[in-house]
Write a protein that binds this DNA or RNA. Structure first.
Lengths: 259, 259
DNA sequence: TCAAAAGTGTTCGTAGTACACCCATGT
DNA sequence: ACATGGGTGTACTACGAACACTTTTGA
């Protein structure tokens, strides 16, 4: 179970942004010709996958890299010229962690505390990445998967980033089809319920999950049935996600438009 | 009515992040000692206020600045050393638009297209700012408020930013108490319903709004009553928001935890 | 034939909307 | 008194959770 946290909100009146002693460093107009203030920008991605672990049930895991200076850290690195942040995130996942495919990648937030990293001032633009559970692990170099509830000490503020990513993921599972990026292309509902359970941290009933997701048009039956498991039981119908693109499926919990 | 758009999602397998020809510009380890890739970072804020306009009802408006080079643009500018992005956003709102108080400020997204601004490569970290409707306009210098549905042509990608901000605001009105930052400290429910209506783009029934928001503990009655309006009518009870901090008030539309 | 897993159906609670009706004030 | 706006109550719908019961397989 993930505790919800409000993200990046600076609330309630800082009255008088009088920027005492703060040098703006530029004239107040023509934004596009100023070139004095540059800063190091890095991307960091929290990549999640629901994976088998020592326990009976699969668990939500995060991909970490061992970094000799600062311990375990999220994969990522600085951006280069003429590259979007998303492209940089993908590039670093390839080079740093051997990950060649993520089914979904989205911006999380920017972490900009001046002291978040010692030495050079570094702003981190962070991402969430999701890998379907049937994609092989392919851990490369010094990368490794960890249960989200059994993380080692992480470098800098990377633990905050992972926590925020988990909250976001849990939230979106409830009102979007984001699980398409965690699930295999075809699956029995009981397996999908386990994926939801792993990501949310509490058990999800497969019966009701089917009802909710099919009413919303998120999953559709493929018509095929799977093999029955090791200990007998009725062979399960196989389902698939209708989209492979993030969609809001329950837009308004309240205050929906009239008619 | 705001059309929902999925934000910042790069979905569905870029298989093989082989970064063809892309120079990473650094060795793959020790993130904290690299200093080659720096980039200009600017903050931009879409500030909203529900304000009286020519029409009978108040409308949602955005604060824009006239910029001689690129036309109307969002207030903001580059960050300086040892300043978080949020602080930079606040500072620029003060110097560029004379705004000394926002009730809520939150990160929106990062816009990083290499060509989003000509000349120097500039990454924009964008924010949403909200100003209560009873705060005087205080337009300063060449800043001006515009109806969100009657915007002039905006500089660069600033129109995209405003649109994304509107979608985010509309969404959060439904499942958080974010309206605290748009409403006066005390208000009759009919006035709050108008604020919701302006921000959402469709009429909101004040009767039901009261029920929803009081069940959730978002608004509370102050006990006082206001003055009756110009054309008679029963004097309204006055309400206030319980918090001045963003809170999720309807966390799970579906898939709530058991028990 | 029995256990295990999957699927179907039913009941229940509750949130949200629509709308009718009652209340308090100014003219 | 009556128009105007505010407040209360009620009926209806829909969604989701819980859970019992039925179905289909393997041992």
């Amino acid at each position: 179970m993930v505790t919800p946290v409000i993200e990046n909100a600076v609330s309630a009146g800082f009255s008088g942004a009088r920027h005492a002693g703060v040098r703006t460093g530029t004239s107040p107009h023509n934004l596009e010709t100023m070139s004095d203030t540059t800063v190091r920008v890095e991307v960091l991605t929290a990549v999640f996958q629901v994976r088998e672990s020592e326990t009976a049930e699969p668990l939500l895991q995060v991909l970490l890299r061992r970094c000799e200076k600062a311990g375990w850290s999220l994969p990522g690195g600085p951006i280069v010229e003429r590259e979007t942040l998303g492209a940089a995130a993908v590039r670093w996942l390839g080079t740093r962690a051997g990950l060649t495919r993520v089914a979904h990648l989205e911006q999380l937030a920017v972490f900009s505390d001046p002291d978040r990293v010692p030495d050079e001032r570094t702003v981190a633009s962070t991402f969430i990445g999701l890998v379907p559970s049937d994609i092989p692990a392919e851990t490369v170099a010094d990368a490794e998967w960890f249960d989200v509830d059994g993380l080692p000490p992480l470098a800098y503020d990377h633990r905050d980033i992972v926590d925020r990513a988990r909250v976001r993921l849990a939230g979106k599972l409830s009102y979007t089809n984001i699980a398409f990026a965690l699930a295999p292309s075809q699956f029995p509902m009981s397996e999908l319920a386990e994926i939801y359970g792993a990501a949310l941290g509490y058990p999800v009933d497969s019966t009701n999950l089917l009802r909710v997701l099919s009413r919303r048009g998120v999953v559709v039956a493929t018509g095929t049935v799977g093999r029955t498991g090791g200990k007998g039981g009725r062979p399960p119908a196989l389902y698939a996600f209708a989209d492979t693109q993030l969609r809001v499926t329950d837009e308004f919990a309240a205050l929906r438009p009239p008619m």
